[in-house]
């Protein structure tokens, strides 16, 4: 029982590992500030938070 011979075509092509940096946007991801200006309440878009207000927008 011999080992199966690997054909050259089945060989995997070596690809050099790469480091990819993905940009995170933590200030957007944590929902820290206002987004909607269409509601009544303290968090509405008109409030004067110390950080720039996250009014409706992408």
């Amino acid at each position: 029982m011999g080992m199966k011979k690997q054909t050259p075509a089945a060989k995997k092509v070596y690809s050099k590992p790469e480091l990819t940096r993905i940009r995170l946007a933590p200030s957007e991801a944590v929902l820290g500030n206002c987004k909607s200006s269409s509601t009544v309440g303290p968090a509405q878009g008109a409030c004067d938070l110390p950080t720039s207000c996250y009014t409706s927008g992408s």
Binding site: L31, C34, K35, T39, V40, G41, A43, Q44
Partner: peptide
Amino acid sequence: PPGESIYPLEYP
């Protein structure tokens, strides 16, 4: 604001 309807689950 007194008397106004409030959305209690207001964003966020």
